[in-house]
């Protein structure tokens, strides 16, 4: 039994008269502690998969087993709990609370979880120990994303889901972020799933899932994932 198993998942949207199928029978599974990269062109359905996996959306058909629990049949309350305790999400546009300092943004997450990591410690983990009391407006993009990652990690989630985390960052900063994610995955053993449309990143992952046109076209494992430093694009 894989850590995460997605079986036969369908997600359809009704737009007036037409039905758009975002996920047309998605199947894949993930192992614990894997660094997973999901690649595919725009509009392929990647974000949809991540959103559903992250408990932000529900699928119309299929099973999603996370650590033995099928979240496809979970109700709103159970999904909230799932998001609260089991998931850490990182967005493309950081989505930090502008009114709170970096540390408080992390505390926002750690307040709602028992046995959370200490906010300062996590900030230190992401290399922002010196930026605890700055507001997001005072941080650069990379720093903001780090805070977002810290926020996600503070909860000690089962899955760390990242939707195009480097999309709004420049080359160097993006690389740094990816490094951070990779390190986190290896050091803490958190299962990390990253969505990107940049194929070049694929080698750093343990598992690469290719989604195209609402279906999983290809999934392969990397026996020896490369370090991000070795990748150039």
């Amino acid at each position: 039994m894989a850590y995460v198993e997605v079986k036969n998942m369908y997600k359809r949207y009704k737009m007036g008269q037409s039905i758009i199928v975002a996920n047309n029978g998605i199947d894949f599974s993930l192992e614990k502690g894997e660094f997973v990269v999901i690649v595919g062109p725009s509009g392929a359905g990647k974000s949809t998969v991540l959103n559903i996996l992250g408990g932000m959306d529900t699928c119309d058909e299929g099973q999603i087993l996370v650590d033995g629990k099928n979240i496809a049949t979970a109700n709103a309350y159970e999904l909230t709990k799932y998001r609260r305790y089991d998931i850490g999400f990182v967005f493309q546009f950081y989505n930090l609370i502008p009114n709170l300092t970096a540390k408080e943004n992390v505390e926002l997450a750690s307040q709602i979880v028992k046995n959370a990591l200490d906010a300062e410690k996590v900030m230190d983990m992401v290399g922002l120990a010196h930026r605890l009391n700055n507001f997001p407006a005072q941080l650069s993009g990379g720093e903001q994303q780090r805070v977002a990652i810290a926020r996600a990690l503070a909860k000690k989630p089962k899955l760390l889901l990242c939707d195009e985390p480097t999309g709004a960052l420049d080359y160097k900063t993006g690389k740094a972020i990816l490094q951070l994610l990779q390190d986190t995955c290896l050091k803490t053993g958190t299962t990390v799933v990253v969505i990107t449309h940049n194929q070049a990143i694929a080698p750093i992952a343990h598992r690469v899932i290719e989604i195209n046109d609402a279906k999983v076209r290809n999934m392969h494992l990397n026996q020896n994932p490369k370090s991000i430093q070795e990748i150039e694009w």
């Binding site: 932000m56 998001r83 989505n95 609370i97 009114n99």
Partner: peptide, 16 residues
Amino acid sequence: MRELSTIKVLGFFPQE
């Protein structure tokens, strides 16, 4: 809206 949705994603219960 964005801020509130983020919080919701973070896993705040509706009452919270």
